[in-house]
């Protein structure tokens, strides 16, 4: 579980995060949504420890990240998996090399044990014929799956995904969403997904945090989002005609 308490972050006097408090629960897919510039990426980078907050605290399993020693921070990071927006795969390594990298860096496993684990996670993300290919030789969807495989190879407690569907076709995007949700449930990971994608919100949003201008404007589940009378959320989520109709149908059905 990750608990965020009154998190603030400023850059050169400009307040980007203005006091966010929320809880991301274990075994759930937690979504952070909001318009561009709402502070989503900064918020996620604070959670990852890549940016130090100006004030407030982030508690991992009840312990404040700021109180962690350097060694403990390092250990915590090894319990985190991250899927970057652009996948961030190492160009010079093959698919197998990318997935094996954290194992080589942080474990004392033999080559056979590492190979077994890599084969398992690549199979788990439905990539069986791409072991020897380089990132430039595979599609965007496959790159995302490799990034997910690399993120889960160390059996993390926390999985962070920054816009995992950006640049993907709708079908592949749904596959990636489903994969993230399945992995979250299967391994009981605390997953935090930063997204713009409304399909993701509807499909996998067990908990949704809506950010606006650096503040938490609303939070709830994908079911709550149909019923909310929060104008900012409605304007953002139902900006497309399709979603407006879906909402109308849902509300009519409920009535």
């Amino acid at each position: 579980m990750i608990e965020v308490i009154d998190l603030k972050k400023s850059f050169n006097g400009t307040e980007v995060l203005k006091g966010i408090s929320t809880v991301f629960e274990k075994g759930k897919t937690n979504l952070i949504i909001g318009q561009s510039g709402s502070g989503k990426t900064v918020f996620m980078k604070c959670l990852l420890g890549l940016i130090t907050p100006s004030s407030g605290s982030i508690r991992y399993e009840g312990r404040d990240y700021a109180e962690f020693s350097l060694e403990e921070k390092r250990d915590l990071r090894q319990e985190m998996g991250m899927v970057f927006q652009g996948s961030a795969l190492f160009d010079s390594k093959t698919v197998e090399g990318n997935v094996m990298f954290p194992l080589e860096m942080f474990t004392k496993q033999s080559q056979e044990e590492m190979q077994e684990r890599v084969d398992f996670v690549l199979k788990r993300v439905n990539l069986v014929d791409a072991h020897t290919k380089y990132p430039a030789e595979i599609s965007g969807g496959m790159q995302k799956r490799v990034a997910i495989a690399r993120a889960i190879v160390m059996k993390p407690k926390y999985l962070f995904c920054d816009e995992p569907n950006s640049g993907l076709d709708p079908k592949t995007a749904i596959l990636i969403d489903n994969l993230i949700q399945e992995i979250t449930e299967e391994y009981q990971i605390t997953t935090v997904v930063n997204t713009h994608d409304m399909n993701s919100v509807m499909e996998i949003g067990e908990k949704i945090v809506f950010l606006k201008d650096g503040l938490k404007e609303w939070e709830g589940s994908s079911k709550d989002i149909f019923k909310t009378d929060n104008k900012a959320v409605s304007n953002f989520v139902y900006s497309s005609e399709l979603f407006k109709k879906v909402r109308q149908m849902y509300l009519e059905e409920r009535a």
Binding site: L48, L50, K73, R74, D75, R77, Q78, M80, M82, F84, Q85, G86, A88, L89, F90, D91, F101, P102, M105, F106, F160
Partner: peptide, 17 residues
């Protein structure tokens, strides 16, 4: 620089490298 732009350096840092 390319590793920085494509977030590969962030990926290393997140892993604890």
């Amino acid at each position: 620089g390319t590793m920085r732009v494509t977030e590969q350096i962030d990926a290393l840092e997140v892993m604890g490298v």
